[in-house]
């Protein structure tokens, strides 16, 4: 057993432990922290596969940005943990059955000789100075230049759409503009209505009797 295998097993053990704790932790903040640990450990797995760029991206994007955001949300929300846990034991048998079936299916595929998995062999080890970032960058900016630019356009569109959909003057806000309040004139607030001082008695009587009949 060489050193990479040992590291692989250690990382896997930590990953499994963290993943289980994400589901079982009582405190949601702890659950998120365990999720961070799970991501970080999977980044270690990427490193073992010699994909340092993916490992760094996973840590930077998921751990650095997404999970921190998530942590904020979890801390802000008032989550009733007891309510979420209701029915945990009741649903456990079904969940366990599903998990067992999934595990069984995976074993079936992985141990079957006829699935042709042998065609997909592990990649040959890279040279010591091989750089993932360089290769990915070269591919993205040459062969896949067009899809890369299009992805940028899609992101721009998403931004425009998000702003276009949310930036609007809502009718139900009670925001006041002090400048408008200062500039107010009498005519804006007071309406002078001209009406007759006395009303025609006969017409009024007729209207009243009409209402009564109705």
């Amino acid at each position: 057993m060489d050193i990479t295998t040992v590291i692989f097993y250690i990382l896997s053990a930590v990953l499994l432990f963290a993943a289980v704790r994400v589901v079982t932790a009582k405190n949601p903040v702890h659950a998120v922290l365990y999720l961070v640990l799970a991501f970080f450990t999977s980044a270690g797995h990427w490193l073992l596969l010699q994909s340092e760029f993916l490992a760094i991206t996973l840590v930077l994007v998921y751990v650095g940005a997404v999970m921190v955001l998530f942590l904020f949300v979890v801390m802000m929300l008032d989550i009733n943990v007891e309510k979420l846990r209701e029915g945990f034991w009741r649903n456990l048998p079904v969940a366990a059955t599903v998990a067992l079936i999934m595990a069984f299916e995976m074993v079936l595929i992985l141990t079957n000789q006829h699935t042709g998995l042998g065609e997909f062999k592990a990649a040959a080890p890279l040279a010591a100075d091989a750089s993932n970032v360089k290769v990915l960058g070269r591919l993205l900016y040459t062969t896949y230049l067009l899809p890369f630019e299009l992805a940028a356009v899609v992101l721009l569109l998403a931004m425009v759409a998000a702003i276009g959909l949310t930036m609007r003057s809502r009718k139900d806000t009670k925001v006041v503009d002090p400048a408008d309040q200062v500039k107010i004139r009498r005519n804006d607030r007071v309406r002078i209505v001209k009406m007759q001082a006395e009303k025609n008695v006969e017409a009024a009587d007729a209207a009243e009797s009409g209402e009564q009949q109705a």
Binding site: P147, L150, V154, G164, L165
Partner: peptide
Amino acid sequence: VSLYMGLELLSLSLYSLIALQR
């Protein structure tokens, strides 16, 4: 890949155009 990116660009614009009348 470019087919798919074009499709997504079109779809995303259409979704947001429909929702524009908030």
